[in-house]
Design a binder for these strands. Sequence first.
DNA 1: AGATATCGTTAGCTGTGCTAACGATATCTC
DNA 2: GAGATATCGTTAGCACAGCTAACGATATCT
Lengths: 146, 146
Amino acid sequence: MTKGEDAEALADHLHSAAIHLLRQLRKEDDASGLSAPRLSALSVVVFGGPLTLGELARAEQVKPPTMTRIVTGLEREGLVKRKGDPHDRRLTHIEATSKGQKVLTAGRARRVKKLAAAVSRMEKEELAELRRGVQLLRDVVTSMRG
Amino acid sequence: MTKGEDAEALADHLHSAAIHLLRQLRKEDDASGLSAPRLSALSVVVFGGPLTLGELARAEQVKPPTMTRIVTGLEREGLVKRKGDPHDRRLTHIEATSKGQKVLTAGRARRVKKLAAAVSRMEKEELAELRRGVQLLRDVVTSMRG
DNA sequence: AGATATCGTTAGCTGTGCTAACGATATCTC
DNA sequence: GAGATATCGTTAGCACAGCTAACGATATCT
């Protein structure tokens, strides 16, 4: 196998694995009534503290109009709150409600449970390798953004 | 960090990485005018030979009505053809056109190019680790489906 | 003060995913 | 064989995500 074919196969496998992984995880996430983009945005808000809508859009690699609707959906569910900025009234700060934190935690628990079931069959060393691979994957994705 | 928190973090990172990876790759795939689901379905048809709409829907983990529209889109672009079955006229067989094969190949090349750029900055050993991680990821996803 | 830039929203488009319901065809049962 | 039942793909109708273009409100620069 040449180096080129190797990279091609890696790209293909990565693409396919990502698609199918998300489809599987979405089934669990559905139990919380939240779509993947909403869950992802909520996660950023919960762990990344309050931030403006534009910052959130950039963090999620999405255009502002898309984020407006995601936030509107989250707000309607009572998971997030919009707050005006006293110093710059064009800005809208988004922060998580306590319900939002609870829902996110519950969703994580569900996902972890499913993933844990799949992972429990792995050898300890394989698990470490997977963890390492995920870390590298994150680096790759980050470098693609730059 | 406890073992539980560790698994939780891994699940979260995987989830997030998969979402962001797909968003990045979709930008390249857009150049071919094909969305991720269409590209994925086309890939199955090209490499998996002719198959019925229902089989394709199952392979892509999607309900038949969804696949009907994906195939309709692909057919309108001339990438795929519907063929009736002489023995069972309820069935519709889907097969790739030569244009479909070309477009898929071109899309792969684009994706690989982008991924290769991100990966070329990695050490040779890191690349091997990533490859190993992707293999494990595929195993995990497969075991989740079962 | 007036021009310019920035932020978030609205409007309108395409596409993906679902369920429910339907027509056409096969198959099973009597 | 005829009628009930099952299967396959499609259509209709809903919710959501993604985009661009255009706008109003507010800040900032000249």
